[in-house]
Amino acid sequence: MTVIASSTAGAPGLPIWRQNLRVFCANKSALFASAVVVLFVAMAIIAPIIAPHDPNDTDLFRRLQPPVWKEGGDWAYILGCDALGRDILSRLIYGSRISIFIGAAVVLFATVIGILAGLAAGYLRGWVDVVISRIVDILLGFPYLIFAIGLMAMMGPGLVNIVLALVYKEWVIPCRVVRGETLAAREQEYVEAARAVGASSGHIMLREILPNILSAVTVISTVRMANVIIMEASLSFLGLGVQPPTASWGEMVAGGREFIMEAWWVSTFPGLAILALVLAINVASQGLRDAFDPRFAE
């Protein structure tokens, strides 16, 4: 019923994705949020150009220098300096690379694995389904953070290890969605038609079913990206973050919390940065969901 509601929103005669895009573009807050996300991504890419200083340049004489509007601050270091006298603004700009990289890499890998496993389980059924579903059940039995902490303890800290530690569990989420969708799609006419003309299982899964469920998966993935960025921050809090001197927002908040009373700016600005990016991703993904996956629309 809501499906009808949403398709009437678009102009008739246009392809569905164009209609969806129109719905999305009509949602001003989602559009604004997407712009913010794009801005962050752009910032990450051109970080070396826009960062006023080398993010790893330490000078203990600038230790905990306040932001420019506070006494003792100066324009060279607008947002102040951290415990080693590094420029917080530059570290924030470079830190966007880490948050975005981890968010994107984890979700990308997890989604690809999740789609393949989910398609196989949902379409092939039988023992493939049993095995995959059991693995999914087992992984779901672990609390996410504890699982990631355990893996990080096993592999040691570092950027790649964080991505791996999160992917190992994250793929389960798209997998469950894809499996459910595939089970439903399997009984649809277009799949039966393909089977009747002798298309291979691989072809049916990837060419027939996948395009039809992709929007649902994409919507889930964007929401999960927000979650993954917060997970990285949590791992940093527990001392399992990226290796120095890499600037990561989670690491900056975690490292600065010791100074929160004496030098609030050290952890507050990266905290706000996480909040802003995650918020933007969440708002944008909600707009995506409303537009592209109308079953959840309001």
Partner: peptide
């Protein structure tokens, strides 16, 4: 922090 300061 200390290690990073020494490293620099």
């Amino acid at each position: 922090d200390m290690a990073e300061a020494i490293a620099s």
